[in-house]
Each structure stands twice: as structure tokens, then as C-alpha cells.
């Protein structure tokens, strides 16, 4: 009986431990790969604030235009406008701001889309979410209207570039890769569960080994 128990123990001892050796390295690399896919394959540049597109003086105001994402792509762009008094630098949040967007490419239709900009997420900025239908050069005209009426208009024109839209699978790569990460955890869990069950089974056999050879 003693021989049986010790040989059973040595057999158990010789079995590769669950969670060690090449399998661990493989799992580690697989997890790292999924993480990299989820993080790295996401959108290249997608900031909240974006980058400055242009700035200048118009009608007694200093106007700054910032766009997100950077670079702009076909889809939607967030345009943020900061209007200040050039002398004092005081932010003017009591004005009406309108953003007109048209294509600046040669041969493009002359029509412009007009969007009223409202107080946005970023303090002091007026923001508008603007659909960008086509890739190419675009022209944004920022019109600032003072309280005294539309006659007191100031306009700033800024040319910008719109790139083709990112592939949607790249834009949502994290959410697409998510189930594979979850699946990796599930596989790990199952291997652990089976390993534990096997270990418990082996210890039961050791504890209740029948007498005799």
C-alpha cells in the first residue's frame, strides 16, 4: 500500500503544474497580444480638445478655432471656438457664434452648411458637432454676432484638410477585441478548474487507496 501511495504521489508530482511552463508563457503572450490589439489598434489620434486649426483678428475680436479629432476625417468633427477681446484678453461668452462649412476643392458645389455653436464641454469655448461628408479641403467661416444685431458681424476664414474616414473596425477595435480577451480569461479559468478538479481527484485517490497490491 505504501508503495502505491508513494508512486501515485510521485506521478502527481511529475505532472506539470497547472499555470507553469510553456503554457504560461503562451497565455502571457496571448494576453499581451489581446491588450495590444485593444489599445494599440484604436484610433490614432482622438483627443477631446483637438488641435488649433487657425486663429486671427476679425471685427474687433480675437478668434481661435480648434478641431477634434486631429486630423479631421470624414464623419463628424467637433469645432471649438474661443472669442476674446484682443486688448484685455477677456473671454466673450455673450456672443452668437455660427460656423459655416463648405468644400474648398475646385469644382465642388458652392453650398455651405451652417451650424450654430453653443457653450461646449471646454470652459469658455463655443462648440458645434459638424458632419464632414467628403475628404479634401474644407473652408470654415466663423461668424461672430454681437448683441447689437447681425450688422455687427465678424468673420474669420480657416482652411482645413479632411482625410478619408478611418475604417470602422479600427475605430472600434477595442470593443471588437473585447470578447477575445474575455475568452482568454474563460479558457484560463477552465484550465484552472480542471486542474483543481484533477488535483482533488488525485488527493482523494491517495487518501482512500484500497489496501493490498
Amino acid at each position: 500500500m505504501r508503495r502505491r501511495v508513494s508512486s501515485a504521489r510521485s506521478r502527481v508530482g511529475r505532472q506539470p503544474r497547472s499555470g507553469s511552463g510553456p503554457a504560461v508563457r503562451l497565455r502571457g503572450w496571448a494576453t499581451l497580444l489581446v491588450l495590444l490589439l485593444a489599445l494599440g489598434a484604436g484610433p490614432g489620434v482622438r483627443a477631446d480638445m483637438g488641435i488649433p486649426l487657425g486663429s486671427g483678428l476679425a471685427g474687433g475680436y480675437r478668434i481661435d478655432l480648434i478641431a477634434y479629432p486631429a486630423p479631421l476625417r470624414v464623419g463628424h468633427g467637433f469645432f471649438s471656438v474661443l472669442v476674446r477681446d484682443p486688448g484685455t484678453g477677456a473671454v466673450r461668452s455673450d456672443l452668437g457664434v455660427v460656423i459655416e462649412v463648405r468644400s474648398a476643392d475646385e469644382g465642388a458645389a458652392p453650398g455651405a452648411l451652417v451650424f450654430p455653436a453653443e457653450a461646449g464641454k471646454h470652459p469658455g469655448f463655443y462648440s458645434a458637432r459638424i458632419p464632414l461628408a467628403n475628404a479634401g479641403l474644407g473652408l470654415a467661416t466663423i461668424r461672430v454676432m454681437s448683441g447689437s444685431g447681425p450688422s455687427q458681424k465678424a468673420a474669420l476664414e480657416v482652411v482645413f484638410d479632411v482625410l478619408p474616414s478611418a475604417q470602422p473596425w479600427r475605430e472600434h477595435a477595442g470593443a471588437i477585441a473585447f470578447p477575445f480577451g474575455l475568452l482568454a480569461i474563460f479558457v484560463w479559468h477552465q484550465r484552472r478548474s480542471h486542474g483543481r478538479q484533477a488535483k482533488q481527484g488525485a488527493s482523494r485517490v491517495n487518501g482512500h487507496a484500497p489496501p493490498g497490491g
Binding site: 484610433p43 489620434v45 482622438r46 483627443a47 477631446d48 480638445m49
Partner: peptide
């Protein structure tokens, strides 16, 4: 500052 994914990371 320019990438939301990098900012989150």
C-alpha cells in the same frame, strides 16, 4: 493630449 486612447492608458 492628442489621443484619447493614449490619454486613457
Amino acid at each position: 493630449l492628442q489621443s484619447r486612447a493614449a490619454h486613457d492608458t
